[in-house]
Nucleic acid binder design. Structure first.
Lengths: 349, 349
DNA sequence: GACCCGAGGGCAATCGTTTGCATAACCTCG
DNA sequence: CGAGGTTATGCAAACGATTGCCCTCGGGTC
């Protein structure tokens, strides 16, 4: 009664009050618990209701446009059927694509997702994670795991179900691409083209992506008997200015590298800009390889050779893994296979 | 009791059960209702509790790490403190940026947001909107309003509190940039540079953004005594291939336009590609103007002149407007001011 | 000294759903 | 035909927070 009054007072509330189990029960002439069981998605529970009764109730529910109230259900079961997702930035198309995959798979499994930006800052990561947990999400997908801070360990210790995506951390369930292999693919491509003096724009040290892509790349060159000197491997931010700054440094070295591997497409765009600024031609004078193969890569004036990673799929797998863990199944890390897309930035032309 | 059992069974549940009002009440030696009032954000309610008692309770809650259970609160109040957000695609940086603004402002007001992609498809828009409403969001921010379908009218009729963002629709509360003015800015820039024969890549007909930007542009040229012929205004998708296709058509016209206004930066990138493919130089032979000024615009090899729109701010204002409406205040449409960033794609060099 | 007033806080109902247990009807089999 | 089992349904108690109403107590007023 009080509530109805509140409703009426707030002029903008949704019009007709939502249908409840009780209303269906009344119309069907059965008890609300029967309706609840008939509408359950759990086969075992629904089995307790006569097939015919269940069918009638479901038809009636459909007709009345019944939608389960998540608040009631959450209160009783202690589960919200919501997953929290943390990403560095949603405006980064890589993470946005991964998130789309997460959300799609979660929706299929009957979960909604809530996403938050952390800007890759430990302080913000903690605050956002807490906010999501305050919302009582059932689990977390973390797209911003850092090797240099212990938020993940802490969450795991609190027994929060969680899955890492994009970046790995030892001992945690994660879904990533095989970044070591990806780096190797880039190296083999450049080796095949005859490059002998190369450099790496290696990304942030705290991100497994940059570290492992770099490692795979260096391994392959070392195995080919052409170890890349440390001076030719520089850390960087993951964005255009970051790549540009790193490349300006590398292009100043003598002898100048004939190709640069950037562990991220945006950094690679920065590298290309630096190459142009130095009066050189991308693909002719200097080869450039990126990573992720974002749509932009193919659309650039000089199209960018890039290691393609299945970003959307990664998100899907991460979400499915988490949902399985919530059902009590053990979580298992996955590394998806990257492939290389060769384009003008290394082939010339 | 049943619930505890369930908890224990699902091995992956968060460890210690969350603190409840009842626990605080017990420890503080007061009734749970007093705790509820002491912790209320509503000044009037909190006034009912002695200042000192309230302070003690708040301190204790803090110490125990109390976090209000949203399910319990939602069940009682009928409000979830969640906002639904619908966007065409989150991988579109324009919408992603707007969404970041929405989420930030919502968080400040104590709301969480849930976002969903609709791919600009009416069928999907409806399904996603229904899914969000099934989650009992308190209101919707729609970033994908189409003038050619009546979902918005329908939602409004059901008295769902809603605010449009980015795109407008007559008679609805919306927060957009002043797109007519934006188009006019682009036109005045080109007129000032001496362009007399121009063309427009106009975007989708169902989106107010494209329509109004085009209108402002055409108005300004008409007022200058240089009306743009209909043949020089072609609709397009909002992405790179869309802009490219439209531009290929326009560059085939004789006499060829000396400048092209694309109502969206991605379409503008497509235009630039088409110009290059035709063996012409952007900024020399053909001027190009985009819209939104996404970060990429300045980073392109030939930097793109673009009408900058305050995307993040738009999201913030939209969310704040919706929250105010939920508080019973009337909603009011806003049009934010765009500005023009002149760069090499029109200035040359 | 009787009365009123206001402040502070307790009581209990309520939101909608789920689920362990109780019950009733029916079936099967010896 | 009755004991034991199965099947279908009802009952009621939670889950946690909010809020209208009522009670108590202290102080002020006439």
């Amino acid at each position: 009664m009080e509530r109805q009054a509140t409703r009426a007072a707030a002029g903008t509330r949704a019009g007709s009050a939502p249908v409840t189990l009780a209303q269906i029960a009344r119309q069907a002439g059965v008890h609300v618990s029967t309706v609840s069981r008939a509408l359950s998605t759990d086969e075992a529970v629904r089995g307790g209701v006569a097939t015919e009764t269940a069918a009638q109730i479901r038809a009636l529910a459909e007709e009345l446009g019944y939608q389960r109230d998540p608040a009631g259900a959450a209160l009783r079961t202690g589960r919200s059927r919501m997953l929290g997702v943390l990403v560095p930035r949603l405006t980064d198309i890589v993470l946005a694509t991964i998130y789309e995959g997460i959300d799609a798979a979660a929706a299929t499994a009957g979960y909604h997702t809530v996403v938050a930006n952390t800007g890759d800052e430990p302080e913000l990561q903690r605050r956002r994670a807490d906010a999501l947990l305050a919302r009582r999400v059932d689990g977390l997908v973390l797209g911003d795991a850092r090797s240099d801070c212990d938020l993940v360990a802490e969450l795991a210790h609190r027994r929060i179900p969680l899955v890492l995506v994009s970046r790995r951390l030892p001992g945690r369930v994660s879904v990533t691409t095989d970044d070591v292999l990806g780096g190797r693919l880039a190296a083999e491509h450049l080796l095949g083209l005859g490059h002998r003096r190369v450099a790496v724009v290696a990304g942030e040290r705290y991100a497994s992506t940059g570290v492992e892509r770099t490692q795979g790349f260096l391994d392959a060159f070392a195995e080919a008997g052409l170890p890349v000197p440390e001076s030719h491997v520089v850390p960087s931010r993951f964005d255009v200015p970051g790549g540009r700054a790193a490349a300006e440094h590398l292009l100043g070295l003598t002898p100048r590298p004939t190709a640069v591997f950037a562990v991220n497409d945006f950094a690679a765009v920065g590298v290309m800009a630096a190459v142009r600024d130095a009066g050189l031609t991308v693909g002719q004078d200097v080869g450039v390889v990126g990573y992720n193969d974002v749509p932009l890569a193919a659309a650039l004036p000089v199209s960018l050779t890039s290691v393609r990673s299945p970003m959307y799929r990664m998100g899907e797998v991460a979400a499915t893994t988490l949902v399985n863990m919530l059902d009590g199944k053990p979580g298992r890390s996955r590394r998806l296979r990257p492939t290389l897309e060769a384009r003008a930035s290394t082939l010339g032309g």
